[in-house]
Write a protein that binds this DNA or RNA. Sequence first.
DNA 1: TAAGTATATTCCATTTTTTGCATATCGTGT
DNA 2: ACACGATATGCAAAAAATGGAATATACTTA
Lengths: 125, 125
Amino acid sequence: MQPPTTCAAPEVQLFKALTHPTRLAILDLLRGGEQCVCHLEAQLGLRQAYLSQQLALLRAAGLIADQRVGMNVYYRVARPELFALLDTARAIVGGSPLAADPAAACPCPKCITITLPHPERNDPC
Amino acid sequence: MQPPTTCAAPEVQLFKALTHPTRLAILDLLRGGEQCVCHLEAQLGLRQAYLSQQLALLRAAGLIADQRVGMNVYYRVARPELFALLDTARAIVGGSPLAADPAAACPCPKCITITLPHPERNDPC
DNA sequence: TAAGTATATTCCATTTTTTGCATATCGTGT
DNA sequence: ACACGATATGCAAAAAATGGAATATACTTA
């Protein structure tokens, strides 16, 4: 409880969720639509448990939503305005929307079976 | 140094500067134009030293700029896009742009001499 | 039901951030 | 030069974020 001048400011929680390179990278990967965890894991080259922690944080902040399909869990951005927010932020600091490593192919069975020839963009498996 | 997938992400620094109710309140007070420190001090009801620390942080982040006029220092938002960022953030989390306490009049001589009758908006003294 | 795969959670040590206090600095007027 | 008002900075204790390891849960398939 602080003086009435320093209000609760729910935006703070939103910004806190965004103060992390990994979490920003995750959101960027979700620009192309929902992605399964294994995809994110492969593209970012991070350990599963660690990635799951960050996903849980973003989920708790209400920024992403998950949907279970068979064996996999697909995540998507819950509020599309988030992308506008990230774009504005980049316009201010002059950053680039993350160069998703095209060489890192997703090892999940879904992607392997389909064998996409030109992974130009993040395709939903 | 992290794997190439987790890039430096300068946005993180921007968001970090925004993860604080006081700093958000300061930026909101600057919506109406530049304000002297004593103004912010009075409106927010915070100790001067503490406020100055937050201002220094925002300054270091390149979000605000200061200008010395006589005895006082006036701060203004360096990147107007910041307001768009804050607006988008509020659209996501559903917050209000801070109800600046109209009862708290600025005690600095500049404001007292002018004796503004209707402080409806943040006027630059 | 049992095993296997995909994803989540909990615990913990380390590092970073926060915040209040004391004090320093800078410009102004006398 | 001196004192004063306005603002800034350094420091230390408390609080929070970070990232790793082990482990738990939830489907699916056999």
